[in-house]
C-alpha cells in the first residue's frame, strides 16, 4: 500500500529549493564546451584547405575531446535523472515546446557530426591509429574526396554546436519559477562562455605542445611518451595566437552578455532585481566576482592580451583559468538561480 502524503510535507507540493547538485552544472559546462568545440571545428573545416596542419588541433583533437566530454556530460545528466530507467522514453517523442526534448535530440545528432569531423583528418593526426585500423584511412579519404560532404559536415557542426550551446542556457531560462534564470540572454551567454572554454582548451593543448624549451618543462616527459605512442605529427603552434585572440573575443562578448544579463534583471521587476542582488551584493557575490569575473574572465583576458602583444610568453594559465571560470559560472548560476524565488514568504 502506498500512503500518499497530501499535506505540505510532500516535497512535490512544497518544492525543495536546491534539488540540483553538481551534476547539472557539470553537464551544462561540458555541453557548452562541446558546443564551442563543434563551432570551432566546423568553421576550421570550412575555411581551411585540407592537409593544413592547423587543422589537426581544431578539427581532430577538438572533436575527439568533444566526443569524450559529451559522453561524460550525458552521464552526469543521467545521474541526475529521477527515473533512470525511463530515459529511453525521451526518444519516443518530439515535443516542439519542450527544451528537454530539443536537447535530447540535439545530443543524439551531435555524436555523428562530431565523429565525421574527427574522422576527416584522423589518419594524419594520429598515424599509429591509422596503421592499426586501415578503415580509418578509407573513411577519411571518402570524406575528404567529397567537397560537398566536407561542406555539409562543417555547416552541421557549426549549426549543431550553436544549438547545443544556446540550449544549455535556454534549459535554465524556461524554468519560470526561478526569477534569476528568466532572461533570454542566458542562451547566448552560455554559448559564448562555451566558445571561450573551447578555444581555451585548444589553446592550452597548443601551449603544452610548443617546441621544447618554450613549453612548460613538466610537459616534456608526458609529451615525449605520448608522441612515441601515437607517432603524431607535432601540432602547428601558429594556431595558438589565433585561438588566443579568438578566446579574447569570446570572453569580451561573454562579459558584455553577463553585463546585459545583470542589467536586464536590475531594471526589471523587484523580484528580478532581488534575484540579481544575489550575484551583485548577496551571498553569491564574492564567488561570482572573484572566481567568474576576476579569475575566469578578467585575468585570462589580460594575460592573453599580453601574450598577443608579445609582452609575456604563452602559458597554460589563461586556458586553465577560462575553463575554471566557465565551470564556476555555471555552478554559481545554477546554485544562485535555485536560491532566487518569486515570493520571499517561501523563504
Amino acid at each position: 500500500m502506498t500512503e500518499l502524503t497530501y499535506t505540505r510535507h510532500n516535497p512535490l507540493i512544497d518544492p525543495i529549493f536546491h534539488v540540483w547538485e553538481w551534476q547539472i552544472p557539470v553537464y551544462l559546462f561540458l555541453g557548452g564546451l562541446v558546443g564551442g568545440l563543434m563551432i570551432i571545428a566546423g568553421i576550421r573545416l570550412l575555411v581551411l584547405r585540407p592537409n593544413r596542419r592547423e587543422a589537426l588541433v581544431c578539427c581532430t583533437l577538438g572533436p575527439l575531446i568533444g566526443l569524450a566530454a559529451l559522453s561524460l556530460g550525458m552521464f552526469s545528466l543521467f545521474l541526475d535523472l529521477g527515473h533512470k530507467l525511463h530515459v529511453w522514453r525521451l526518444y519516443t517523442t518530439f515535443q516542439v515546446t519542450s527544451p528537454m526534448s530539443w536537447g535530447s535530440w540535439i545530443l543524439l545528432l551531435v555524436y555523428p557530426a562530431l565523429a565525421a569531423n574527427a574522422l576527416a583528418h584522423l589518419p594524419e593526426a594520429i598515424p599509429a591509429l591509422a596503421s592499426r585500423f586501415p578503415a580509418l584511412v578509407k573513411i577519411s579519404d571518402f570524406i575528404l574526396a567529397r567537397p560537398r560532404l566536407v561542406l555539409f559536415a562543417g555547416l552541421t557542426n557549426t549549426a549543431l554546436g550553436a544549438a547545443l550551446g544556446i540550449y544549455t542556457g535556454i534549459l535554465l531560462s524556461t524554468l519560470g519559477g526561478r526569477p534569476l534564470w528568466n532572461s533570454a540572454v542566458l542562451g547566448p551567454l552560455f554559448l559564448f562562455s562555451g566558445l571561450s572554454t573551447a578555444a581555451a582548451l585548444l589553446h592550452g593543448i597548443l601551449v603544452l605542445t610548443m617546441p621544447s624549451g618554450e613549453r612548460p618543462a613538466f610537459a616534456d616527459f608526458l609529451l615525449s611518451a605520448l608522441a612515441r605512442m601515437t607517432q603524431a605529427r607535432p601540432l602547428d603552434p601558429a594556431a595558438a595566437p589565433i585561438l588566443a585572440s579568438a578566446d579574447n573575443s569570446f570572453l569580451t562578448v561573454e562579459v558584455s552578455l553577463l553585463g546585459l544579463f545583470l542589467l536586464g534583471h536590475v531594471t526589471s521587476t523587484a523580484v528580478h532585481h532581488r534575484a540579481a542582488g544575489l550575484l551583485l551584493t548577496g551571498p553569491y557575490a564574492a564567488p561570482f566576482w572573484v572566481l567568474v569575473v576576476g579569475l575566469g574572465i578578467a585575468m585570462p583576458l589580460l594575460l592573453q592580451t599580453l601574450e598577443l602583444a608579445h609582452r609575456i610568453r604563452h602559458t597554460l594559465a589563461p586556458s586553465l583559468l577560462v575553463m575554471f571560470g566557465g565551470f564556476a559560472l555555471r555552478v554559481i548560476l545554477v546554485s544562485a538561480g535555485q536560491a532566487s524565488r518569486w515570493f520571499e514568504a517561501l523563504n
Binding site: T281, G282, P283, A285, A286, W289, V290, G294
Partner: peptide, 11 residues
Amino acid sequence: FGDEVSLIVAF
C-alpha cells in the same frame, strides 16, 4: 560595504 564585498576587496 558588507562581508561579501569585503571578500572581493580581499582578492
